[in-house]
């Protein structure tokens, strides 16, 4: 494998890894925004009514 080929391969791998990292940042940001705007507790149903988890207005 020539130096050019190795560099091309590395460049491609780095680009893919970069995309994964950007994707991860977007996901963490998205989760934060959704949790902050909704602010709801996802735990609710387990066949019994749990008044403690219900939102009271």
């Amino acid at each position: 494998m020539t130096d050019e080929e190795i560099h091309a391969r590395r460049a491609k791998n780095n680009k893919m890894l970069g995309l994964v990292l950007v994707g991860f940042v977007v996901i963490v940001f998205g989760i934060t925004i959704v949790k902050m705007t909704k602010g709801h507790n996802m735990e609710a149903f387990d066949h019994v009514r749990r008044p403690a988890l219900e939102v009271t207005q």
Partner: peptide, 16 residues
């Protein structure tokens, strides 16, 4: 199919 609706984005993340 679970009887609690999940925010689509959080659902997507959970599956991911």
């Amino acid at each position: 199919v679970a009887p609690v609706s999940v925010h689509p984005f959080l659902g997507f993340c959970a599956i991911l």
